[in-house]
Design a protein around this nucleic acid. Structure first.
Lengths: 265, 265
DNA sequence: CGGGATATTGACTGTCATCAATTGCTGTGG
DNA sequence: CCACAGCAATTGATGACAGTCAATATCCCG
């Protein structure tokens, strides 16, 4: 059973994106990784005023919920969020975690409605770009469209990675490696993670039972790969983890067309 | 085996019965579902000449392979293809099947290289739009960008659907419903499918063993849901299948989460 | 018509889920 | 300040779903 608390926020969670003044993309720490990352100074100046900064989300507060009309693209400035759905059987499926610099909501463009809910796992600061402005802006700034496509493309890649048929070991190792890679604030790659998500969240993301997550983590610890203390996880042997997860890494597959078992020729 | 470039210079292009000189989006059966679907007549006329039509792919021929540089977006005009990867362990993962009117390659934008291979499952006709032209065209035609985003968004949705934690039954039922929905050439929804993919392909797509696909199909047949004869599958009870797969349907989750209970099994 | 790939069916195994009990952390109130 | 509630995480025992191995059956293509 995959249930979790759809953490109750306040009733007005998705209705009022209080605009607390203007965002300052140019001085934002996440700028390079974010949507305006490829824009020049003047373009950034043009871009900035379109962005609204929301009141900070408290842990458990929702950014949007299933069925909400899709109004803006959101970017995480700080904190961590998850998008998820509860299916007809009551099981929670975590579609993605969102770290600083990442954009949320690209999958809602098509139906113009959110098919997922998005909740903050910790206090989080989020910037919003009205979807209506996006069209105008990309018309003016080709770089923006390029960046948008790249981010979308990257999201698809990430989704495809965990969608694949891998063992529980591989998926969890891949998860740790991925989180480490996406958390780099300034260091090359952090070796010490402070996860914002619970075991249950991780399990629902990786299609595992939370007990299995615990057990595998214990095994990794016994093998000297990690030191796991609740939500703080130290990667003692990142290369070892990466090796376990090697099969999930899409970049590891250039050049040599390996022995193909099931491929059509 | 290498075909990165469309065959145009050869005199051989005149051997095929069809006029291969240029694409005729305006008269294409797939136009509405395809990239230029939202364009007006004059814009379509502007769009058309940018599109190259490839020599038809034979079953088993590759459209691109892992590591190829990403040059164009491709649209399926007829036939069926699959994109897949072979991981470090030699396992094949089928990322997606591609039916007429669908666009291939959007996930390769980011690294500018194909991280997957794409092979035709039957004889297939494919149209190619150079990625370089895409930027120019979307600048001119906002509708094109909208359509592009919608298609991307839809792809992500599809990927997320099968990525979730569902039982083998649910995934296979969902697969059948999805294929039926995506194959509608003109009928409302076909009740009779001629699959282009093997059991192995389906299994690799759904993270199952091919034996499991067979077994579940047999069970569905025993329950009167389908009539499966090799690659020809008749959906005897589409609603029953849809009900089994209900939990995978992202649109079923608006307002009231409660579903009507009819005959199960 | 025959060989090889594809599909089906059966028996058994293993991975991971489920059920259950316990521990440990955190915040709250007596 | 400690006791307790409540939740998150761990650990153990057991079982089920799907995978693996193996043996035909069937189709397709030469």
């Amino acid at each position: 059973m995959k249930e979790s608390q759809p953490a109750e926020g306040h009733g007005a969670s998705s209705t009022t994106p209080l605009d607390l003044g203007r965002s300052r993309c140019r001085s934002c720490q996440q700028r390079e990784r974010c949507l305006p990352g490829t824009l020049g100074a003047s373009q950034t100046q043009r871009f900035e005023p379109m962005v609204q900064r929301r009141r900070p989300l408290a842990s458990g507060e929702h950014l949007f919920r299933v069925g909400d009309t899709f109004r803006h693209l959101c970017a995480v400035q700080s904190g961590c969020l998850k998008t998820y759905t509860i299916d007809a059987e009551g099981r929670e499926h975590v579609m993605a975690f969102h770290f600083p610099g990442e954009v949320i909501g690209l999958d809602a463009v098509f139906p113009a409605r959110h098919l997922t809910s998005c909740v903050a796992l910790t206090g989080s600061q989020v910037c919003c770009l009205p979807y209506a402005s996006l069209g105008t802006l990309t018309q003016e700034m080709p770089e923006l469209q390029t960046q948008l496509l790249r981010m979308l493309s990257r999201d698809m890649l990430g989704a495809a990675s965990i969608a694949g048929d891998y063992t529980a070991n591989e998926r969890l190792a891949g998860f740790l490696v991925m989180v480490a890679a996406r958390l780099h604030r300034r260091e090359p790659t952090p070796t010490s993670l402070n996860l914002a998500m619970s075991r249950q969240d991780i399990a629902n993301y990786l299609r595992l039972a939370p007990e299995t997550v615990s057990r595998i983590l214990a095994r990794f610890q016994k093998d000297g790969l990690v030191k796991a203390d609740r939500r703080h996880i130290a990667l003692l042997n990142p290369d070892g983890l990466a090796e376990i997860a090697a099969c999930m890494n899409p970049y590891a597959r250039f050049g040599v067309p390996q022995l193909q078992r099931n491929a059509a020729s």
